[in-house]
Design a protein around this nucleic acid. Sequence first.
DNA 1: GCAAAAGTGTTCCAGATACACCCATGG
DNA 2: CCATGGGTGTATCTGGAACACTTTTGC
Lengths: 231, 231
Amino acid sequence: MNAASFYSKVPRHLVAVDCIIFGFDEGKLKLLVIKRKVAPMAGEWSLVGGFVQTDESTDDAAARVLKLTTGLDDIYMDQLHCYGEVARDTGARVISVAYYALIRIKDHDKPLAQEHGAHWLELENMPELIFDHKKMIEDALVKLRDNAQFHPIGFELLPEKFTLSQLRCLYEEIYGRTLDKRNFRKKILSLDVMEKLEEKDKTSSKKGAHLYRFDADKYDQLKRKGLVFEI
Amino acid sequence: MNAASFYSKVPRHLVAVDCIIFGFDEGKLKLLVIKRKVAPMAGEWSLVGGFVQTDESTDDAAARVLKLTTGLDDIYMDQLHCYGEVARDTGARVISVAYYALIRIKDHDKPLAQEHGAHWLELENMPELIFDHKKMIEDALVKLRDNAQFHPIGFELLPEKFTLSQLRCLYEEIYGRTLDKRNFRKKILSLDVMEKLEEKDKTSSKKGAHLYRFDADKYDQLKRKGLVFEI
DNA sequence: GCAAAAGTGTTCCAGATACACCCATGG
DNA sequence: CCATGGGTGTATCTGGAACACTTTTGC
């Protein structure tokens, strides 16, 4: 059999990407979701998505969709899972590859997002979503937890400069449980991957809290030497 | 926009599944690979795969492909990753969803496998493979390690009755390092998820080693009570 | 002066690691 | 009788968990 006859007569499918876009604001994990504009399910809440084009990889498609809605490039994104049930999309048979992204809410293009009907909703208070998007979000949260424990991805959700309280609050949100203040400080500081700045943040206390910055270069160096990041 | 116009004019893609089929035999992790029969790359080593049909989910397609080559049903399978680079398949643009499966080599339909040109090759001594199949295998091994540590999936690779030495040997293969005999026994037995049988296996020692059987019901009970499986 | 968040150390316990010898048996 | 793999217990160490008071300063 030659290549032409091997690949011909094979069914072709619509392939979509859906993005679970995490943000962190006001001490809460949030997701960027949109009011769907097209039938079926127009007007319902949906993840941000789009179809994979002929000349782009699925990774590229996810990056394109993210940029289209947030204006952001060069963002932490990871593939979550491919959802391939025949009837998962009620409009047509669509195979969807889901990605999750971590962004700094402050950095995104707010007008652009609004133009696309996008809203930041609290993870803990998600409305009904179309198709299997709820399941995607659940799966993404599990994966986020797993990854955040052993990789320094939490910093992707915080501003460049942040306080230890903010960082702890973020991890508490991700893990869904409280963390001991002293143990958390001890552990994260012992990793020695953050730079302590002179500046203090006074927005949330009279005393002021030191700001820190994640040092990616230092992390890479230490990782090569065998550092095991764990929070 | 209505549904018909929304979904029309969207490019459609060939979607394949590829299966990384792990087995364990003679103390070694092995993979079931085939000599590819069709162009391009006919005659080269390849993972077992096939195209996703119109009426089947990607999970179903993977299960179908596995059954076709091994005769086995109802096997541990988990999705690995969706590989979506545009040019990953040199014959056409094919998006591939990879799955990995754990089977008991002794249970598979050997003649059927041979008929499909399938061979069990040692993981440590893999030849070159077509396309990105090498990468898929590497990714699968990472995922297998991660999963085996916290889920009792190692048992899927062993016969129903096995000795502690066999089990330890399997984990040594998976992790790629030796494990202390006494510590391993202590840990695995303390989980209390295996039934100790009266029978002994004398094939590998004069004294004979007790056979054990994994007790899935007991594991499920203990898990509900909060047992954390970890090896 | 007081409210509100920042910052700081020690004790305790569980689980991981390291390690060496006797046992049973077929040949 | 000896070679081979099976089976066993203890001491030590490390890292996680629990826990409460002082500091700073804006109001």
